[in-house]
Design a protein around this nucleic acid. Sequence first.
DNA 1: AAGTAAACATGACAAAAATCACAAAAACAA
DNA 2: TTGTTTTTGTGATTTTTGTCATGTTTACTT
Lengths: 235, 235
Amino acid sequence: MKYIQTIPTCETCDLQKFSVFKHLTKIELANLSIDKGCNFFKRGNVLYNEGNRINGFYCVNQGVVKLVKTGIEGREQIIRFAQKGDIIGYRSILSKELACTTAKVIDDAVVCFIPASKLFGLVQNNNSFAMELMKLACKELGEANKFILDIAQKTVRERLAEVLMLLRETFGLDEDHVLQILLTREELANIVGTATESVIRLLSEFKSDKIIALNGRKIQFLNENTLIRLSNFYE
Amino acid sequence: MKYIQTIPTCETCDLQKFSVFKHLTKIELANLSIDKGCNFFKRGNVLYNEGNRINGFYCVNQGVVKLVKTGIEGREQIIRFAQKGDIIGYRSILSKELACTTAKVIDDAVVCFIPASKLFGLVQNNNSFAMELMKLACKELGEANKFILDIAQKTVRERLAEVLMLLRETFGLDEDHVLQILLTREELANIVGTATESVIRLLSEFKSDKIIALNGRKIQFLNENTLIRLSNFYE
DNA sequence: AAGTAAACATGACAAAAATCACAAAAACAA
DNA sequence: TTGTTTTTGTGATTTTTGTCATGTTTACTT
């Protein structure tokens, strides 16, 4: 964890245009920058731990953070990812509960920290912001509900196929159709909710079926339609 | 579905004291009652279907409603229950998405319907209400995340034990320790995320272990500590 | 009250997935 | 670079869970 020399100000941060902060006035943005902390975190760094009381929320400026819950015998379940423009920790502030996840950096990141008071201030004074925040929470809730259905009803193969497509949507592919996020097999297993060995086996199966190509942690998408079909996509 | 003669007004509704509406002024409550619909629904009635665009939200005055997502081959997954004082449908209004669940009555219910415009009006003009609503969404999100972990990592037996304890918390027991909600084995399976046969087998197992007693759909709790232990409860 | 449909129960079996054991490869640190 | 740790990969085995078949009981309908 390294202190950043030039703290990106919220006013000049181009991420705010697309984020939950998009309806803030110049003054509100300037005010947001005051008291704001900003740090650089390497892969493996933890922003906060499950069960912590956090007194602010985090805005990811660069890199990728995974939010995980720790279960039986320390086994992690990845709940979601946060990348540039995403905010994390706001749930536990708003519901006045302890953090329900651990936030761990998986791709070297620059993350800003904003005290809870600022969040409450904005909610009080800017209705559009309150609405945006609510929309965000409700969207996440919808996604969580969808995931509950999937994990309850789909096979591991279907879920892995679906997770690959979700990762594709979230992180995109480069010009060679290579997924723009590197995850260990264990991390993949911790999203899908299965054993690491199962992911390894299924990935090689997808590979021999020419659906994907593998090169270390790089996953190249060769046949997305089949992947969608394998995920038992409906609706 | 029967029209109620005497529509309960929001001002006189004693549920509002404990609900998300607790910070509304008398005037706001009176205003909420205008345009409000209120109906009686029998078990099996559907308030709205997954995929519907709903233009209002529902407040449960009496009875129990289950929120389900429909998955593979029509198999239902119960996401949550709503009972007296709970509101449903607000998620899809706030996130401006289609309903992500179907709301089905499982215990004869009186349910009020409030147009979306009223909700937006309150969010705009009453910051405490906006905060309450946010808190609610964030609390639900936390519960959903917890459930994802459970379903991903626990065995069916552990999940059933946990679900029984959750139902106990939500609906309570009578003086004979009988759970105050009647669910079919299939509905239990649709909460736990397993096959109906598995629930039947595990319930009889719990019964022969003297953890519960069964009488039709009535479940009597004989040994809650063992149930908690079986649920692999930690933290 | 009789007939029909739904829910409950149980056994046998099959499928899916976890676990264990171990080896090879890759990543990391000194 | 070398040694160490982590990650990846594979086979064998066991456990868990789902599916299918069938019979019984209970609830609902007319």
